[in-house]
């Protein structure tokens, strides 16, 4: 295909889409890239919702969840988005403060997690955890303090909290578990930290390549290898401090052109049908108890969960990040 043809095709599709839009209402969903990707939950959720809604679902994917929030912030009242899917525990407080999100006004079914929120509907969740290879690390540490006590040759890969969600999650985890002792923990971790990568992908890649013994990821990561690759050698290290959750949520924008469809989509996300799609495409736990359809490899989510205070999170997160980076200097 020559570039001319390519440009022509692009121009034609620009004309073609608005005409399609006249037939059916279009629901515009902002989300992160791997959600909308061909192997992500996006395509199946779109197909499922379109069967009943009489509409067309249009995903508009940005690099990651924080980018989608920045995008609607920049667009403000002129945003074409109806729904934002993929904000999480760390970004939701900030999203709420922007005043861009409307109440969902839905009565949610009984969920597997504690949830009461006027604006955001959860659609999956997970816990940050250190993933290791059972063959090369037969005795993983059982807490941050045990990890610190190991020889410095035991390496972990983390993500930079300024650019990555799990990186930020780890800052919250250590602070929630250890309070004012957090800088001490970070200093103890320092000799073990191979690097702070830009994103989860790079860190996980380093770990899979054998460059480090553990990587900060999710309790559900071993399930991916067990299910998609039939490889059972990965596990997450059970930490006695407890875990901090990452709940992924969706919200309707006040400026939505299709507010009704948007709310229907949110309601659809917590139906058993949609919840059955999410675990093996987004590799997170479903928020509905769908034990009969959830593959056994997901196991039971950890029970000792640390509680986060949203107001504290909102006011202190930035200071926590600075504190962690200062301790690692």
């Amino acid at each position: 295909m020559s570039f001319k043809h390519f440009a022509l095709a692009a121009a034609l599709s620009a004309i073609a889409v608005p005409t399609l839009a006249q037939d059916k209402p279009v629901l515009t969903v902002y989300t992160y890239d791997s959600f909308a990707a061909e192997w992500g939950p996006g395509p199946a959720l779109k197909a499922g919702f379109e069967q009943t809604c009489g509409c067309t679902v249009n995903f508009s994917a940005s690099e990651d969840a924080i980018s989608t929030l920045r995008k609607v912030q920049l667009e403000g009242a002129t945003s074409p988005a109806d729904v934002v899917v993929g904000l999480d525990t760390a970004t939701a407080p900030e999203a709420r403060k922007t005043g861009l999100f409307a109440t969902h006004d839905l009565t949610l079914p009984t969920l597997a997690i504690n949830w009461a929120d006027a604006e955001f509907v959860p659609f999956d969740y997970g816990y940050f955890a250190f993933v290791y290879n059972k063959e090369t690390t037969p005795n993983p540490p059982k807490s941050f303090e045990e990890l610190i006590a190991l020889p410095p040759s035991f390496k972990i890969v983390l993500q930079d909290p300024r650019s990555s969600t799990p990186g930020l999650g780890n800052v919250i985890w250590i602070r929630t578990a250890y309070g004012d002792r957090a800088p001490e923990i970070w200093q103890g971790l320092k000799p073990h930290i191979l690097t702070l990568s830009r994103g989860w992908s790079e860190a996980y890649g380093l770990f899979l390549d054998g460059q480090a013994d553990m990587v900060l990821s999710y309790t559900t990561s071993p399930s991916y290898h067990a299910i998609a690759e039939q490889d059972g050698k990965y596990a997450y290290a059970a930490f006695t401090e407890g875990y901090v959750p990452q709940v992924e949520v969706a919200g309707v924008l006040k400026t939505a052109k299709q507010p009704e469809l948007a709310r229907q989509f949110l309601a659809y996300l917590v139906t058993p049908e949609a919840q059955a799609i999410i675990p093996t495409t987004n590799w997170m736990y479903p928020v509905l108890d769908i034990a009969d359809t959830l593959p056994a490899e997901f196991g039971t989510p950890p029970a000792n969960v640390l509680t986060l205070d949203e107001t504290v999170l909102d006011t202190s997160l930035k200071a926590w990040v600075d504190e962690a980076l200062a301790a690692l200097q």
């Binding site: 924080i66 930079d160 300024r162 650019s163 930020l168 320092k190 702070l196 990568s197 380093l206 990040v321």
Partner: peptide
């Protein structure tokens, strides 16, 4: 970030990225 081994090695570009996204 990948090879720097931690925040002791970074560039202005990283700070700019953080200013846009995190803050």
């Amino acid at each position: 970030l990948l090879l720097g081994g931690g925040p002791a090695n970074q560039t202005l570009e990283v700070a700019i990225y953080a200013a846009v996204r995190l803050d």
